Computed example of a mutant assay.
Amino acid sequence: MVAEQKSATAWAQMIEGWEAKLAGDTLDAEQRFQAAKDLADVRGFRYLPISKVAELPVEELLRRIEAIRGDKTGEPDMREAASLMGTVKEPQITVSKALQLYWELAREKTLGKSGDQLRRWRNPRKKAVTNFVNVIGDKAISDITADDMLDFRNWWLDRIEADEVGANSANKDLTHLSDVLKTVIRMKRLGIALSFDGLSFKEGDARQRPPFSNDWIKEKLLAEHALDGLNDQARGILLVMVNTGARPSEIANLTADQIRLDSNVPHIAIAPEGRQLKSKYARRIIPLCGVSLEAMRAHPEGFPRYRDKPGLSATVNKFLRENGLLETPEHSLYGLRHSFEDRMLAAGVDDRIRRDLFGHRLDRERYGNGASLEHAQSIVQAISF
């Protein structure tokens, strides 16, 4: 009698789950899968996916087939058949869903914690998952690749190089993400090999990405149609970087007021409008020349797709890597900034002017107003593509 009640409950859950699946309700799809497991258990079997059922000894397979009950017409009940033959697909666990599961799976870590301690324990894990989802996407854990992890690391490296965060903050975030995902993989017996090896940063020693060579920029990155597969705003930001050396985030957050194309010397103004700059030295004006001027003319209102949003570096780096446009595996979008500085050095640009254009501190007292915009334009024009 108890078994029959359990069976009826499992059937009802399966019906609700299937209806929910048709409606695209992921949560109910998970309930459907659990109902299939429960129904198999009621019939005295462990739920196995169809691939495993097919590998069972003939005797065991026949036992499962014989246990499938019929409906009122005498036909095999499809719900029973699905449960015992393993045709109910287990829903994939996304990164955000993994966090929901983690709270329950790791509950022993919260024993004895006060409300405030629990909040402080949960918040960095929420933040780590949110960062990953914003940069890489809310992928199924089984679909996360080594390239995804490297892209996420590069996003942190961009922030470290821009002095937005320290290596310690990045390492803590990676540790919390690893804890969440690996706990779910282990406790749910998913059998997924997800490696975090080699992703951490040396404390106080963020490795600087190498600059692109002039030949590579000219012959590869700026080759006709080379960037056609990249979305237009990401492509525009990359091209603006080429001859300005501005940080990707600085370009992405430009407003229409900061893009001054009608000036006698077209330029962009890096200023703290709605956001903090890296430092007081980051506030500056940069003339637009060559491909950077052309790109900015194509986007006079800026780049709203990436304004105050993550994901730019990951998108560009993935495109460059997949299309053979990274000079070495160590190169990334940020290397264009270093390339611009190297070209200034090779051209013998005065240290004061170079640092003013780059937004760096000058290691001596600043006197006067520095180079005029016209003078800066002539310097940048000479080293532009």
Rank of each mutant, 00 (worst) to 15 (best):
A256P: 00
A382Y: 06
D356E: 13
A282T: 09
L177R: 07
A140M: 08
F201C: 11
A81N: 06
M344Q: 14
I50V: 14
K182V: 00
G204S: 04
L239H: 04
K72Y: 05
G115A: 11
P248N: 00
E66Q: 13
R297K: 12
A106S: 09
A82T: 06
V240T: 01
A20F: 08
L320N: 03
N171E: 11
K318Q: 10
S332N: 07
N134G: 03
L174N: 07
A8E: 10
Y102L: 03
A371G: 09
D151V: 10
D116N: 04
N369K: 07
G112H: 07
R305L: 02
G166Y: 09
V242Y: 01
K37D: 14
W18M: 14
V349M: 05
L336E: 07
V129S: 05
R355I: 09
S195C: 05
W121E: 04
A314K: 04
R354T: 02
R247I: 00
E273I: 15
S263N: 05
K202A: 14
I237P: 00
F303Y: 08
I270N: 04
L239V: 01
D163Y: 13
F319V: 10
E80W: 13
D151Y: 07
G236E: 02
I259V: 01
L199P: 09
L39R: 13
H360T: 04
K182F: 08
A67K: 04
P248F: 00
E330S: 09
T175A: 09
T87F: 13
S263G: 03
Q13F: 14
K97H: 09
K127G: 13
W103K: 14
P287S: 11
T130W: 10
F45S: 08
S51N: 12
L174W: 02
I144Q: 05
L277T: 00
R46W: 15
E273N: 08
A295Q: 04
D363S: 12
S292G: 02
I379W: 10
K202V: 01
I15M: 15
Y367N: 03
R247F: 01
G324V: 09
T328N: 10
K89D: 15
K52M: 08
A98F: 09
V165D: 05
